[in-house]
């Protein structure tokens, strides 16, 4: 077969089914199936601030997803260039729940091990401190200057609250997904 021909039969026909299975744990099936009514009008992409500077094309992503281009959707960088601004979600004339669908696809990518190091780092902060953006010494001083407690009344101030957050993330399996080592309190295999 010539190099530029794709046999549709050879694409991953179970991709969409898997997507529904994973997504329906959180979202309604109607919402997930909304993507099937996409008419490729490009209103999403024309509305997308990311598409104006990156290769990300929401329209194309959904087309690939519906046809079963599993690898290019889940392994590519494009999926991660959406800032979840919901502009396309608001405007889509077919009522496709774009941003939520992208989030489910990202969950699929992550579960297959496609998680950027930078994102593992962000996740590790929460596992370690309860905060995605933890306090710094400099800010602690600043807080005092403003008449606030040096540590905010959050997991930063309540170790048992931090343990509760960590317990939840163990129960949901987040630590495994991220590859977090509770002994070292660091990410595993960090390059």
């Amino acid at each position: 077969m010539p190099a530029n021909i794709t046999r549709i039969n050879e694409l991953n026909s179970s991709f969409f089914k898997d997507f529904i299975e994973i997504g329906k744990k959180i979202f309604s099936e109607d919402m997930l199936h909304s993507v099937e009514s996409c008419v490729q009008c490009g209103c999403c992409t024309g509305s997308c601030p990311s598409s104006r500077r990156t290769a990300f094309r929401t329209r194309k992503l959904f087309r690939e997803m519906l046809l079963g281009f599993r690898d290019s959707v889940l392994e590519g960088d494009d999926l991660w260039l959406c800032t979840t601004c919901y502009t396309c979600y608001e405007r889509c004339p077919r009522g496709v729940k774009t941003t939520d669908i992208i989030r489910v696809l990202r969950n699929m990518a992550v579960s297959q091990g496609h998680m950027a190091e930078a994102h593992r780092m962000t996740a590790s902060y929460v596992l370690r401190t309860g905060h995605g953006v933890p306090v710094s010494e400099e800010v602690q001083k600043l807080r005092e200057e403003l008449g606030l407690s040096s540590l905010p009344p959050t997991t930063h101030s309540y170790p048992e609250a931090l343990r509760a957050v960590q317990e939840i993330l163990k129960l949901t399996g987040f630590d495994r997904i991220v590859g977090f080592d509770w002994k070292t309190m660091e990410l595993r295999g960090r390059k």
């Binding site: 309540y158 993330l169 987040f174």
Partner: peptide, 26 residues
């Protein structure tokens, strides 16, 4: 007292919707 990261809607839910939802619910 004892609240944590919300956690960030576009970021954490993109990693794992269940975890995001559980922490937010807490």
């Amino acid at each position: 007292n004892g609240a944590s990261c919300c956690p960030a809607p576009g970021v954490f839910s993109s990693f794992h919707l269940d975890s995001w939802l559980a922490i937010a619910a807490r």
